[in-house]
Computed example of a mutant assay.
Amino acid sequence: MKKLVYVVLFLTFLACKEQVKPVEKQEEQKEETVVLNDFPEELRKVFDAHGGLNIWEKQRTLVFDLPKPDARETHTVDLISRKDKITTTNFSIGFDGQHVWLLDMDKSYNGDAVFYHNLMFYFYAMPFVLADDGINYGATEDLKFEGVSYPGIRISYDNDVGASSKDEYYLHYHPETFQMQWLGYTVTYRSGEVSDNVKWIRYADWMDINGIVLPKSITWHNYEGKTIKEEKSTVTFENVELSTQKKGATFYQKPEEAAYVTKE
């Protein structure tokens, strides 16, 4: 009789143990899934057309080169902390999480490091940077170009979000594929005043990096309001890398010879 009781207890223990395992597995899967309920349905489809937020959110480090006549720039960004670093043969710019620094021993850099340090990252990492916190989504009229009407989403920011919270963006996507096609944006960084001058970039050249669809090049166009005109200039991106690994603890820190810079 005792043996029978032990057998029953043992089988009961195994049954309970087997029932617990699926619950733990479901919890792990739930933690790895990005919640998309706060985004407009159309924006969710745009994210999906570019590989999906679930894959993007697993990436930690983005690297890309910008070939320029004077010096090739290598941009490195921590996608979680948003620390960044730009290196060239002549100068380096970095953001350590709190402050922007500039290493420019021969005084060859004549731009605004605070404005520039993450500028190209935001243009390059579209549409995924539009999933950041502090963003508001609204409606905007279609953008028409060469006989096609591209639906759009208006993006604005909460106060004190980023360096220019009064900036606005207009993402326009293909009506059938939902792939991003155009980005309109205003610049309020230096004035601090709301602007109605919307500049336009065409996104029509893409590449697949680890399942994420990112630009191979982007092209600024001349414009009159929302009337898009001829091409103005193109920026290409080379040697693109996406990694789930982060850089070492000192990678984004200010070098001893560098100096912190403030908004001009």
Score class of each variant (00 low, 15 high):
residue 153 I to M: 07
residue 126 M to A: 14
residue 115 F to S: 07
residue 141 E to T: 13
residue 114 V to I: 08
residue 52 G to N: 06
residue 63 V to E: 14
residue 153 I to W: 01
residue 21 K to M: 14
residue 80 I to D: 10
residue 32 E to L: 15
residue 107 K to L: 15
residue 117 H to K: 06
residue 98 Q to P: 01
residue 86 I to M: 01
residue 148 V to K: 12
residue 141 E to M: 10
residue 75 H to R: 09
residue 44 R to L: 05
residue 40 P to I: 10
residue 102 L to W: 02
residue 58 K to H: 04
residue 70 D to N: 13
residue 150 Y to G: 06
residue 49 A to H: 05
residue 117 H to T: 15
residue 139 A to M: 08
residue 30 K to Q: 10
residue 111 G to F: 09
residue 109 Y to M: 07
residue 72 R to F: 05
residue 46 V to Q: 01
residue 131 A to P: 02
residue 134 G to Y: 06
residue 115 F to I: 09
residue 51 G to Q: 08
residue 66 L to M: 14
residue 86 I to W: 00
residue 79 L to Q: 02
residue 95 F to Q: 00
residue 114 V to G: 00
residue 126 M to S: 07
residue 150 Y to Q: 09
residue 152 G to Y: 00
residue 133 D to N: 13
residue 149 S to D: 15
residue 120 M to Y: 14
residue 41 E to H: 07
residue 99 H to F: 05
residue 58 K to E: 13
residue 147 G to I: 08
residue 63 V to I: 15
residue 129 V to H: 00
residue 22 P to E: 06
residue 115 F to C: 09
residue 67 P to V: 13
residue 124 Y to N: 00
residue 101 W to I: 04
residue 122 Y to F: 14
residue 79 L to N: 01
residue 146 E to K: 14
residue 81 S to W: 07
residue 61 T to D: 09
residue 84 D to L: 08
residue 145 F to A: 11
residue 20 V to P: 01
residue 95 F to E: 02
residue 119 L to G: 02
residue 72 R to Q: 12
residue 84 D to R: 03
residue 87 T to F: 03
residue 137 Y to V: 10
residue 85 K to Q: 11
residue 32 E to A: 14
residue 113 A to C: 09
residue 103 L to E: 13
residue 140 T to I: 14
residue 106 D to M: 13
residue 148 V to T: 15
residue 24 E to V: 13
residue 41 E to T: 13
residue 66 L to K: 08
residue 108 S to T: 15
residue 139 A to E: 12
residue 45 K to C: 08
residue 36 L to W: 02
residue 43 L to R: 04
residue 126 M to V: 15
residue 143 L to Y: 00
residue 53 L to S: 07
residue 108 S to H: 06
residue 127 P to K: 02
residue 51 G to R: 09
residue 100 V to A: 02
residue 50 H to P: 03
residue 142 D to E: 12
residue 43 L to Y: 04
residue 152 G to V: 05
residue 149 S to F: 10
residue 60 R to N: 13
residue 134 G to M: 07
residue 67 P to F: 08
residue 75 H to A: 09
residue 121 F to R: 05
residue 48 D to C: 03
residue 72 R to P: 01
residue 107 K to A: 12
residue 136 N to R: 11
residue 64 F to R: 00
residue 90 N to I: 13
residue 80 I to G: 02
residue 73 E to N: 04
residue 54 N to F: 03
residue 75 H to N: 11
residue 37 N to L: 12
residue 129 V to G: 04
residue 22 P to A: 11
residue 82 R to N: 11
residue 71 A to E: 12
residue 153 I to A: 05
residue 77 V to A: 07
residue 121 F to A: 12
residue 56 W to R: 04
residue 58 K to V: 01
residue 111 G to L: 06
residue 134 G to D: 04
residue 35 V to L: 03
residue 121 F to E: 09
residue 82 R to E: 11
residue 27 E to Q: 12
residue 43 L to F: 10
residue 106 D to P: 01
residue 128 F to W: 01
residue 86 I to Q: 00
residue 135 I to L: 15
residue 112 D to V: 11
residue 125 A to R: 00
residue 62 L to N: 01
residue 39 F to L: 11
residue 36 L to P: 00
residue 87 T to G: 02
residue 137 Y to N: 04
residue 49 A to P: 07
residue 29 Q to T: 10
